[in-house]
Design a protein around this nucleic acid. Structure first.
Lengths: 338, 338
DNA sequence: GAGTTTGTTGCAAGCGAGCGCAATAAGGGC
DNA sequence: GCCCTTATTGCGCTCGCTTGCAACAAACTC
């Protein structure tokens, strides 16, 4: 009710007539303490509304049980579900999430600096750009880092990511198999290697198969850039029979642009392919052909890597590549020539 | 590189040849210290890679600069954008986010317990159920709480929420104005008062205007329950000419069900209305008529309330109601009778 | 020039809890 | 009954940092 000071272990000890260490032990799992004493302490604690101070404890144990989750735009459904999975996974493991949203323009160093002051036990980076800086700063102070769908040429940093290049290749194969000869591509944010890798695999395979990329537009991973990107492509000199977008969200935008802005029939007039397999990709209105990222599995892998390094900082670093799965739906034509 | 102990202020002091308090002051904004000394300390700190330990600091100041954000399913776009807004707003104010996802089945008390051990400066509750418990527990220890789109009959708890009942009323008025006489409703999770309030306002107004609710189905706020909910309604005894869904996500599902599962024309055969105004509601495929929640404004209000209480715990509690705005798009017929 | 204000700096007392160590009690073996 | 092992418990130091207080110098006031 009133602004009274929180009870400390000493207060509880006094009330219960025991030592302060006894209180500490009563609340620690491995505390060597008799059941009888524990009961007595717990009772006194309850009466005072006492809760162990996690900060004080961390000061001694050098463990905060907090993991920093550094992410980009949470409103983007791809990030949202990833954060969700990490958050649940961490909680299951008894860890807490310190959430950092890296907004464009904000200095990453400052964010990292802040996080490190809180002595987090580990860092997970989901954000697009600048993973290198984060990795370096953390490594210097010995905080384990796991990069999710990012990578840097740097020792001592673990990472999990989907096989982007291979995903692009699969899509190229699929499209050519279905008879497409002239295709288009809408990229994500130019600085993001994720998009570049997908494009690289795609482009190379398209060339290998003797097909041609007749249009390429720069996007930004969001719905609107997919929509406007398609418009740009379709009003260009050469119209492709299929468009591969570097993310599902852009593909949804492109698909809507094709149907509603240009009155086209998808997939008869043009096929659209995405990457991620967002829940919305399976919605009846879209039925998007895409590469599925097994989020649960990837996140689990990421967490395992992180935990391993936390428990043994000298463990060797690993980079795990996870293959994506081609999910064919009806945003792509399944026969005929382009 | 190697697992060396992190430098402490004492280490920096030794290297710089000053007292430990000087180091502390060199890193605190209001520290009474000469520029000269500050420079010297900063240089030594840089050399050792020193960063103040936020935990140790909090132990003394009784301020952690951490705010707990207790949320439901982050993958739900409605929560995602709310979390995003809160997260950015808190960061702007120099606060950090401790993210808690309340999964169904998990005991809320445990989550609150954990959070309170970290001595967060405040708590924001976005999650659906059980706000009462959280509010009570926090209040007992004097931690400011703000409920977002939730409320409990409880003193000492601030809240911001959209006028749910009024939103339902507006939709009822709109539909009747457009000539609908037989309408349907798909609810959210039954325990959530948000859905109940929207329904209450809707139902009452529908009755007042002499129209009729011919179908009501229980949903769960997600896409699939909107889809299956619509199926249930449409295969029922009496088909409405318009269906109001307690959330946009369900409305998208219902709309897709109408079009793709039943081959109906929306809005000619049936009108669909949602609530929230998610980004997807404006996508060309959906063009959903809905009630817009001014997320930015609501979040800002919530943050202001929280900050006010943190800075002055004795400040009076407030409940702020924010009106929603009817956004008419093309998922509803704009003339003719039902 | 004595007294007072202002600005810096160091000292040392904690903040709340974990843990090594010593002390004590209890239980076993002979 | 004596010695040793095991289980409990308390003592006191420590984690890294903030802050009130005292010490001191420099700058004013009249």
């Amino acid at each position: 009710m009133t602004r009274t000071k929180r009870a400390s272990s000493t207060d509880v000890a006094r009330l219960a007539g025991v030592s302060q260490s006894a209180v500490s032990r009563a609340f620690s799992a491995k505390g060597a303490i008799s059941d009888q004493l524990r009961q007595k302490v717990r009772a006194a604690a309850l009466q005072l509304g006492y809760r162990p101070n996690a900060l004080a404890s961390s000061l001694i144990t050098n463990r905060t049980n907090m993991i920093a989750l550094m992410t980009g735009d949470i409103a983007n459904p791809h990030y949202a579900r990833t954060i969700n999975a990490f958050s649940l996974g961490l909680q299951e493991r008894g860890l807490h999430v310190l959430l950092i949203s890296l907004v464009d323009g904000q200095k990453v160093e400052d964010a990292v600096e802040e996080v490190l002051r809180y002595r987090v036990d580990g860092v997970i980076v989901i954000s697009a750009a600048l993973s290198a800086e984060v990795g370096e700063a953390c490594q210097q102070v010995g905080v384990p880092v796991v990069l999710y769908n990012r990578y840097v040429k740097q020792p001592n940093v673990c990472s999990v990511r989907i096989e982007n290049s291979d995903g692009g290749r699969r899509i190229a194969d699929f499209l050519v198999d279905e008879g497409h000869q002239r295709v288009g591509f809408i990229s994500g944010t130019p600085v993001d290697p994720t998009s570049a890798d997908r494009e690289e695999g795609f482009t190379r395979r398209i060339a290998q198969r003797g097909a041609e990329i007749v249009a390429r537009v720069e996007g930004g991973f969001d719905f609107d850039s997919g929509r406007s990107g398609f418009a740009q492509i379709w009003t260009g000199q050469r119209q492709p029979s299929a468009v591969f977008c570097a993310s599902d969200l852009m593909a949804l935008g492109a698909l809507d642009a094709a149907r509603h802005d240009f009155g086209l029939d998808v997939p008869q007039d043009v096929s659209i392919v995405g990457f991620d397999d967002l829940p919305a990709a399976a919605w009846p209105s879209y039925q998007l052909t895409t590469i599925r990222q097994p989020v649960e599995a990837m996140v689990k892998t990421g967490l395992d890597l992180l935990m391993a390094r936390i428990n043994d900082p000298s463990a060797t670093t690993q980079t795990v590549l996870i293959p994506g799965e081609l999910v064919v739906r009806s945003s792509t034509r399944t026969s005929g020539a382009g």
